[in-house]
Design a protein around this nucleic acid. Structure first.
Lengths: 154, 154
DNA sequence: GCGTAATAGTTGATTTTGTAACTAACAATA
DNA sequence: TATTGTTAGTTACAAAATCAACTATTACGC
């Protein structure tokens, strides 16, 4: 006969707490902490998550190709392609074909794109500070370092 | 005249590192750390993320209504509804209408659902341990506590 | 150079999610 | 007991993500 089902999490023998399962917990924290910021870029500029990521990469690192953005942001090339298209449609960036390798093109923010980037960067900075305020600076530093490591496990 | 664009992150005055922005970093860590586990429930049982979440909730807490699952897992009711439908189609759970309030129905895992839950719970436990192995136990405890807090900021 | 493979990026079809409107059942109240 | 409001869950339609196939261009091996 099979052992009886034990719905109680405190049962011991095979204890497992879903709420502590790192992939689940990380997702919950990520979703929750993204919400407020998401509303800003969505309502203020009509952007999607893919779009602000591209915008931020161009804002931070300057001229990049779609390929480079995909690698740095870990976004699939179709996501990047579509995000770039929408940002180009709204005149947030310009595309310039590489003269030597005409397959790739260099992307750069327009002044409007720069302005949006600066605005959102400010919001991001404030928001990050607000999140960090829940902890000591040492704790936050450790958190970031652990997250970087988890993000890097390929 | 406007100040010149500064693509270099080390510029100081308005330093901002996207790679350290918590919502971004959390998302990266969550995505990366979910990948390997995702492959298991996907390849082994053809489940989606919404489905294993429902499965785990029923496995852990026993009989629940869709509403209760939605609240605990913070999933929108349409997501829960569709996940439940698919799990019911595959005979992983049964639905029983509440006699006193015929709007809601009680969900319970079938033996097949139980088996899948146990299997995946084992995988989850191992995987979580593998992730935790990158840090000291104190660090992991702090990480979980911080993530719980971030997830709870509503 | 010619044929084959690789790469940057786009497009199209399918799946999954998100949003809003809907049905059915219950609750409160005049 | 009608009336109005609320709740559990489903359905329909639009938005977005995924995956595979495609174009154009460059690189490689002979």
């Amino acid at each position: 006969m099979m052992t009886e089902k034990s719905p109680n999490p405190e049962t011991g023998e095979d204890s497992f707490d879903l709420a502590d399962f790192l992939p689940f917990l990380l997702n919950q924290a990520a979703e929750e902490s993204s919400l407020a910021f998401q509303n800003v870029y969505k309502n203020r500029y009509g952007m999607l998550r893919t779009e602000w990521r591209v915008l931020f990469h161009l804002g931070m690192y300057g001229r990049l190709t779609a390929k480079e953005i995909g690698t740095r942001a870990r976004m699939h090339k179709t996501k990047v392609s579509r995000a770039v298209q929408r940002l180009a449609d709204r005149r947030f960036l310009t595309r310039t074909r590489d003269a030597r390798d005409r397959r790739s093109e260099h992307l750069e923010l327009t002044p409007a794109g720069e302005a949006a980037y600066r605005d959102l960067r400010g919001v991001a900075r404030d928001y990050d500070a607000k999140l960090a305020r829940h902890f000591t600076s040492g704790e936050v530093a450790l958190l970031r370092s652990m997250l970087r490591q988890l993000a890097g496990i390929r």
